[in-house]
Design a protein around this nucleic acid. Structure first.
Length: 255
DNA sequence: ATGGCGGCTCGCAGCCGA
C-alpha cells in the first residue's frame, strides 16, 4: 500500500496537479493539507472520477485537510478529541487495516509570536492523543505537514535558520516525543540523497537553488515501519507551472 | 537586506504561510 502526503496550498488551484499526480504516482492513500475549501466546495466528483473516495474537513481561506483513498475509508474522526480548535487540521480513518492520520501542524510564525505557544500546545495535545490512539491501533500512519525540520540535515542552511520557527529545540523535542511513542520517520529508515527537502519558499528562486526544508513527514508505528519498503520525496510537481510550495512524500508498506 | 511570492478575501490592500 502506497501512502502519501502533500500540502497543496489550495486544492481549488491545485486540483489539476493533484489529479495528474494521482495518475503518475498511483498512491493508494493521499493525505492533503491546506485545502482552503469549505466542505461544500470540495471537488468530490473529480476525485471519484479519478478512482478515489475522499473524506475532508475544511474551512474558508485557511487550513483544511482531506484523505483520498482507493480503498474504503472507515471510522472517520475529526480533530484532536478534547482539544478545542476552530482550525481544521486533523482527520483520521481506517484504511485496509491501518489507521491513517492526516495532520496539518500549526506553523508558529516565529518564536516571539503568540502562534508559537499555540503550536507547542497543539503538539502536546496531538502527542497525548496519538499515544492513546496507538494503543488502540498498532498499525498506524501519521502523515502530514509537521512544520518541523527534525534535524539540521533537514535544513538547507542550518546556521541561517538557527532560532527560527520550524527548527527550534522545543519543536524538535515535540517531534521526537511523538517518535518516542513508537513511531519511525519512514524517510530515515532508508538511505536518502543529501539535501532532500519538501518545502521551498516561493521567493528568491529558492527551489532552483534548493534552499529548502524537510517538514512534511510520514511517521509509521513500529508495527508498520517493519513492513515499509521505501519512502521518497517527489519533487516533480514542485517544478511545474504554478506549483504548491510543498512537494509530496510517499511511503510504501506491505500489508 | 525583514524584502522576496502566491494564495485568500463581501478584494483594489492586507492577511497568512514557512
Amino acid at each position: 500500500m502506497k501512502l502519501a502526503t502533500w500540502n497543496v496550498n489550495s486544492l481549488k488551484v491545485r486540483l489539476p496537479q493533484v489529479l495528474d499526480w494521482l495518475k503518475a504516482a498511483e498512491p493508494d492513500v493521499l493525505c492533503l493539507q491546506e485545502t482552503k475549501l469549505t466542505d461544500d466546495k470540495f471537488p468530490l466528483e473529480e476525485i471519484i472520477s479519478a478512482g478515489y473516495e475522499a473524506i475532508y474537513s475544511g474551512q474558508k481561506t485557511y487550513n483544511g485537510v482531506a484523505i483520498l483513498s482507493r480503498f474504503p475509508l472507515a471510522d472517520r474522526t475529526e480533530g484532536i478529541p478534547g482539544f478545542e480548535d476552530e482550525q481544521k487540521r486533523v482527520l483520521s480513518a481506517t484504511v485496509n487495516g491501518a489507521r491513517v492520520v492526516c495532520a496539518y501542524v500549526p506553523n508558529g510564525e516565529s518564536p516571539a509570536s503568540e502562534k508559537y505557544p499555540y503550536k507547542l500546545k497543539w503538539l502536546d495535545a496531538f502527542q497525548s492523543w496519538l499515544k492513546t490512539e496507538l494503543a488502540l491501533y498498532p498499525a498506524m500512519a501519521v502523515l502530514g505537514d509537521y512544520n518541523i525540520a527534525p534535524e539540521d540535515r533537514d535544513v538547507h542552511d542550518p546556521k541561517a535558520w538557527e532560532g527560527s520557527v520550524l527548527v527550534t529545540p522545543e519543536e524538535r523535542r515535540a517531534f521526537n516525543e511523538i517518535l518516542g511513542l513508537g513511531f519511525k520517520d519512514s524517510f530515515r529508515i532508508f538511505d536518502q540523497p543529501d539535501k532532500t527537502f519538501t518545502w521551498w519558499d516561493y521567493r528568491m528562486n529558492a527551489f532552483r537553488r534548493n534552499m529548502g526544508l524537510r517538514i512534511d513527514h510520514i511517521l509509521l508505528s513500529d508495527a508498520l515501519a517493519t513492513k515499509c519498503t521505501g519512502c521518497k520525496v517527489d519533487i516533480f510537481p514542485r517544478k511545474m507551472e504554478r506549483p504548491s510550495d510543498h512537494a509530496p512524500v510517499m511511503a510504501e508498506v506491505e500489508v
